[in-house]
Amino acid sequence: MGKKRAVVDQRLCVACGCCVKVCPLQTIVVQQGLFAVVGDKCVGCGKCVKECPASVIQLEVSEP
């Protein structure tokens, strides 16, 4: 099993910051009011995926 991680589709992100509010590790930030950027600490819990009003965050599994 590879590691899970949240990935933001930055072209469609509306930079509302809902993901920032729910991230338990506070590792997602809205950069320059343009789009969300996921930090290194992401463990792929999927809270932001559920919360995102635009549904532009997905969990991706990286191959080990």
């Binding site: 509306v14 930079a15 509302c16 809902c18 919360e51 995102c52 009003p53 635009a54 549904s55």
Partner: peptide, 13 residues
């Protein structure tokens, strides 16, 4: 849809 769907098309946003 999602609770904060308004944020997606909010004119201020």
């Amino acid at each position: 849809f999602k609770p904060r769907s308004w944020c997606v098309y909010c004119p201020m946003g």
